[in-house]
Amino acid sequence: MNSTMQKQFHDLAAKDKQVQYEAYQNILKGTEQEVDWAYDVWDQLKEDLAHFDPHHRSRAAQFLANLAISDPENRMLRDFPELWKVTKDEKFVTARHSLQAIWKVGLAGSEQKEIVITHLVDRFRNCDNEKNYTLIRSDIIQGLRNLYDVLEDEAIKQIAMKLIETVEDKKYYKKYKHIWK
C-alpha cells in the first residue's frame, strides 16, 4: 500500500471529524478501481465489522464491499456472511450505509453477483416486519439498479421488476418503479 493510502487509513482515527470524513471519502474513491493492497487491510476491516463503534462497522462494510473487486483469492465468498450481518446492524444508519454499498460485491464475479442478488431478493421479500422496511426495500431496488447499470445484465432488471410487482402499496410501488425509469 502506498504512503498516501496508508495515511488515509490512519486519518480515519483523527480527532478532527473533517479529517476523518475526507479520509473516508478518499478511501471510497481509491477503492472504486481494483487495487493491489486489499489484503493489507482486509483482515482488519473484517474484524471491524464487529467493532463496538457503529462508524467503524459502517466504514468497514463499505470498504470491504468496494474491495471485493480486488479479491483474487475470493475471500469475499467466505467472508460475505459477516459483511451481510452489518446490513442488519442495530444502528439503522450503519445498516443502511452497509446495505447501500453491498451491491458492489456483485462486481467481483459471477459467484459474488449470485450471492448478493440472492441475499437482496430474500431480504426484500422478508423485511416487511423490520422497522423502516420501505427504505430497506428502496435501497435494495437501488442496489439492483446500480448493479444492472454497471453489468448491463438483463436478468438483474427482471429480478427487480418481479420484486416491485409484489408491492401492494401503490405509493411504494411507484417509488420503486421510478428507480428503474
Results as ranks from 00 to 15, higher is better:
1 M>F: 08
5 M>L: 07
5 M>G: 02
5 M>S: 10
6 Q>C: 12
6 Q>D: 15
7 K>S: 13
9 F>Q: 03
10 H>Q: 15
14 A>Q: 03
17 K>I: 06
18 Q>E: 15
18 Q>V: 10
19 V>Y: 11
19 V>S: 09
21 Y>Q: 14
24 Y>D: 09
27 I>R: 04
27 I>Q: 10
28 L>W: 07
33 Q>N: 14
34 E>R: 14
36 D>G: 14
37 W>F: 11
37 W>K: 01
38 A>H: 00
39 Y>P: 02
42 W>K: 01
44 Q>A: 13
44 Q>E: 15
46 K>L: 15
47 E>C: 03
47 E>H: 13
48 D>T: 00
49 L>Y: 11
50 A>Q: 08
53 D>I: 02
54 P>C: 00
57 R>S: 00
58 S>T: 02
58 S>R: 12
59 R>V: 01
59 R>W: 12
60 A>M: 00
60 A>L: 04
60 A>V: 06
64 L>W: 08
67 L>K: 03
67 L>N: 07
68 A>P: 01
69 I>D: 08
70 S>Q: 10
70 S>I: 05
73 E>S: 11
79 D>W: 03
80 F>T: 00
80 F>N: 00
83 L>F: 09
84 W>P: 01
86 V>D: 07
86 V>W: 06
89 D>L: 09
91 K>M: 09
95 A>N: 06
96 R>I: 01
97 H>I: 05
97 H>D: 12
98 S>M: 00
98 S>T: 03
99 L>G: 02
101 A>E: 14
103 W>V: 05
105 V>Y: 05
110 S>V: 14
110 S>R: 12
114 E>F: 08
114 E>A: 13
115 I>S: 08
117 I>H: 04
117 I>E: 13
118 T>A: 13
119 H>W: 04
122 D>V: 07
123 R>N: 03
124 F>Q: 04
124 F>C: 05
129 N>M: 11
130 E>K: 10
131 K>M: 13
134 T>H: 15
134 T>W: 15
135 L>T: 10
137 R>M: 13
138 S>I: 04
143 G>P: 03
145 R>F: 13
145 R>D: 11
147 L>A: 02
150 V>F: 13
151 L>C: 02
151 L>M: 09
151 L>K: 05
152 E>F: 07
153 D>M: 01
156 I>N: 05
157 K>P: 04
157 K>E: 15
158 Q>E: 15
159 I>A: 10
160 A>Y: 06
161 M>E: 14
161 M>L: 14
166 T>R: 01
166 T>G: 04
168 E>M: 03
172 Y>F: 14
174 K>L: 07
174 K>W: 10
176 Y>P: 04
177 K>C: 06
178 H>I: 09
178 H>D: 15
180 W>A: 05
181 K>V: 06
181 K>C: 05
181 K>G: 14
